[in-house]
């Protein structure tokens, strides 16, 4: 029983991070129908940016996060601007373009910060809470809380604001949206910037839990992508559920199957997707390709 709950707690801590990564994938996908394969690398840049401000400029950790989000938001805008001419013309090229951007970002990180990486001290330096023998890291609670806040904020933005409604409209039918005077390009740019901002949030939060180096984005990106698909690609609450599910699944598989855990996680994932191809909260909002 103790193992069961402790594993759940551990899985949720990382699941919250996967959820944030998945939300970034989803917001871009639902708006543009595009999978941003550079997303994992943007997460990595976010982790570097936040930890660098935190460690070298001695800015408090929770101020360095918004700074990092601005940095990656700008990167998101650049990616969208460069790919914009391809919008509605060649989707395959856009996909390849995002993969290319991923490589560029990884190389840039190596040039700026070196290939070695650094460890980030935990900003919340209190003893873990002990609840009936289950140890809960205070930092994990912070991560879960931030992820929850980000989800609520994003859903409110999409449903309650004019800009958000415009993005929904573009997602549903971009030609009709253009006809009623919505600037599709701008809408896409906002989606990319938000996605990149979420990536920085995920990267910054995960930095003290892991070791920051230029290849950090790889596995986080894959898990986040799987989470987004599992929740129903393009669905924001779905991305959160998917992220937590992948995190928890990962932890249980690790306990049960040890060295074969990765295999089991993706097998389970494949089976779920075969039974329900649209993911748990399946609604395919976009199909533009």
């Amino acid at each position: 029983m103790e193992v069961f709950f402790q594993t759940l707690v551990g899985g949720l801590g990382f699941g919250a991070v996967y959820a944030l990564v998945a939300m970034g994938f989803s917001i871009v996908y639902r708006t543009m129908g595009l999978v941003n394969f550079a997303h994992g690398q943007v997460v990595m840049i976010g982790a570097y940016a936040a930890s660098t401000f935190y460690m070298t400029a001695h800015v408090p950790f929770f101020i360095s996060i918004p700074v990092a989000m601005v940095v990656t938001g700008l990167i998101g805008l650049v990616i969208e601007r460069v790919l914009r001419p391809l919008e509605n013309k060649d989707f395959d090229l856009m996909l390849i373009g995002t993969i290319g951007f991923g490589m560029v970002l990884e190389s840039l990180a190596t040039i700026i910060w070196g290939a070695t990486g650094h460890a980030v001290p935990s900003p919340v330096d209190t003893e873990p809470l002990d609840v009936f023998g289950i140890r809960i890291r205070t930092y994990s609670i912070v991560v879960l809380a931030v992820a929850a806040l980000a989800t609520v904020a994003l859903v409110l933005f999409l449903q309650r604001t004019k800009r958000g409604a415009a993005m929904q409209a573009v997602a549903m039918d971009h030609e009709a949206a253009t006809a009623v005077g919505i600037h599709v390009g701008r809408s896409n740019a906002v989606a990319f910037a938000i996605g990149a901002g979420l990536a920085a949030l995920a990267g910054a939060l995960v930095a003290p839990m892991l070791y920051v180096n230029p290849t950090l984005g790889g596995s986080l990106g894959i898990k986040g992508f799987a989470a987004a698909i599992l929740g129903g690609f393009g669905n924001i609450p779905g991305a959160v559920v998917g992220g937590l599910a992948i995190g928890v699944l990962d932890s249980y598989a690790a306990g049960r199957f040890q060295a074969y855990s990765e295999l089991v996680v993706f097998l389970v994932f494949t089976v779920i997707i075969m039974i329900k191809p649209t993911g748990l909260f399946g609604e395919r909002t976009v199909n533009r390709a």
Binding site: E2, T7, F14, D250, S251, A254, G255, S261
Partner: peptide
């Protein structure tokens, strides 16, 4: 005797078993 993968990030399950 717990075995984890090289890419694993959360070791709760293995470590809780060890703690017991």
């Amino acid at each position: 005797d717990q075995v984890v993968t090289t890419d694993q990030k959360d070791f709760s399950a293995a470590l809780t078993s060890i703690r017991q």
